[in-house]
Design a protein around this nucleic acid. Structure first.
Length: 423
RNA sequence: GGUGAGGUGGCUGAGUGGUCGAAAGCAACGCUUUGCUAAAGCGUCGUAGUCCAAAAGGCUACCGAGGGUUCGAAUCCCUCCCUCACCGCCA
């Protein structure tokens, strides 16, 4: 959520920044400004009426205690009460309207963000490793998975429909090994605190981290009790401190959490849906940081490096791209995507998206920090996958495939998996 | 799921219709005293919105949330949420 004060004071600047996203947000800014004027007018009126009522009511109290008549005053206050009822609903409606508008306006992209309209314009920041070369035929993860019986998509469909995975045997064990490896790496070497949060979250949390109200069609919800299946651990973990005031001295907070992630993927049927790379439920290890406003951008670099380290230790070839203004997600000011190379698809797979939301989420969840002078400010929040499992799984088995059909595993996984290869 | 007790400022805790945004204590911060520490004394010490060109200052709202009664609600009534205790059920 953008600061209404910023919009009020520098509307042209805000429109300019939003225009780089390519959407039509200028009209929303004008609308929110119009509502803001009305809202404040109603609020000022309401305050005046309230002040009058308060003053007169006290006079009534005084008169009564002295045994004097107060009927005239009471009639006056009753009349004010009617005005108050009227203006209150105006003010409440204005506030509601303003809030709804603000919730629908995306974050301002970082001033240095690359300008562009589509993913094609995202610059590559760096790449790591060597693209693996194979002498013979290269199998993709679907063929490899079938051969080695690592997962079963047909039978998973019997359970839950298309878009679900059932890992089996060595596949299930590899999935577990990867989770364990990532959690240990981030907690033991990168200083993150492990969390194991609820997978069902309240509506307010989904609003806090910007999944709602805009993307409701992509979420699984449980109508009866108004809970949602978290589409990422970002939701429960970032909201952990919602509505709190943290001491700046205890920041940054660094959390890592493994959770399954639930996504309806409405509208993406047929797109990159082969195998296990786009599914309705997948495992992910997520990194979350809560920082002071000053340090968030350097923390973003560190967080991205922490995520990259997973791929480096797994020995997977990857590249990092920065999202251009037209591709950066709704709440983010700056995002790096990490893409692992998939030999089977001859393409890069997005395995992590590391974003700095600045105060955009914090404002929605009223998450603040108190600095040394005792001043309260909104925190900055960041997150990034560290990493998304199925795609890493796919890249890993495709990259490690050997001519005899077996899969060689990187050394870091040996003790977690219990063997050096899958055959 | 049932019954009972509760939810007040960073914490403890008073306050059952009228200058209560809220006593008191603790914690915190500042100053004074002091050779240092300790102790003592004094002072400051919630959040947000709004008015004003801005500062100073004013005003309003907030005592779990939302409604209601009343001239006036932290206080009375209703609904909901949460916490605790006991009972039932259960991985």
């Amino acid at each position: 959520m953008l600061d209404i004060r910023l919009i009020r004071e520098q509307p042209d600047f805000v429109k300019e920044r939003l225009a780089t996203r390519g959407g039509d947000d200028a009209a929303k800014i004008d609308e929110v400004l119009r509502v803001d004027v009305e809202r404040r007018r109603a609020e000022t009126q309401l305050q005046q009426f309230n002040a009058d009522r308060k003053r007169l009511s006290k006079e009534i109290g005084g008169k009564r205690s002295r045994g004097e008549s107060s009927e005239e005053l009471e009639a006056q206050v009753r009349a004010i009460g009617e005005e108050i009822a009227r203006v209150t609903s105006d003010a409440a409606a204005g506030e509601e309207q303003q809030k709804n508008l603000l919730l629908g306006i995306p974050n301002l992209p970082h001033p240095q963000a690359p300008i562009g309209r589509t993913a094609a314009e995202n610059p590559v920041v760096r790449s790591w490793g060597e693209q693996p070369q194979f002498a013979g035929e290269v199998l993709d993860h679907v063929s490899l998975g079938a051969k080695l019986q690592l997962f079963d998509l047909e039978r998973a469909a019997k359970l839950s429909g298309s878009g679900f995975i059932c890992f089996t045997g060595a596949g299930a064990r590899l999935e577990r090994a990867l989770i364990q490896f990532m959690l240990d790496l981030h907690t033991q070497e990168h200083g993150y605190t492990e969390m194991s949060p609820p997978f069902l979250v309240r509506r307010d949390c989904m609003i806090g981290t910007t999944q709602l109200p805009k993307f409701e069609e992509d979420m699984y919800g449980l109508e009866e009790n108004q809970l949602f299946l978290a589409p990422t651990a970002e939701v429960p973990v970032t909201n952990f401190h919602r509505e709190e005031i943290l001491a700046a001295s205890e920041l940054p907070k660094k959390f890592v959490a493994y959770t399954p992630c639930f996504r309806r993927e409405a509208g993406s049927a047929g797109r990159e849906t082969r195998g296990i790379i786009r599914v309705h439920q997948f495992d992910k290890v997520e990194l979350v940081k809560i920082t002071t406003p000053e340090s968030s951008f350097e923390e973003l670099e560190a967080l991205t490096a922490d995520a990259e380290r997973v791929l480096q230790l797994l020995g997977l070839y990857y590249r990092v791209i920065e999202l251009c203004t037209g591709d950066v997600t709704f709440g983010s000011a700056k995002t790096y995507d990490i893409e692992a190379w998939s030999p089977g698809q001859n393409a890069y797979l997005e395995v992590s998206s590391c974003s700095n939301f600045m105060d955009f989420q914090a404002r929605r969840m009223n998450l603040r920090c108190k600095d040394a002078e005792g001043k309260n400010r909104f925190c900055h929040t960041l997150n990034g996958s560290g990493l998304a499992l199925p795609r890493v799984f796919a890249a890993l088995i495709e990259s490690g495939q050997q001519p005899d059909g077996s899969v060689r595993l990187p050394e870091v996984l040996h003790r977690y998996f219990g063997a050096a290869e899958i055959r």
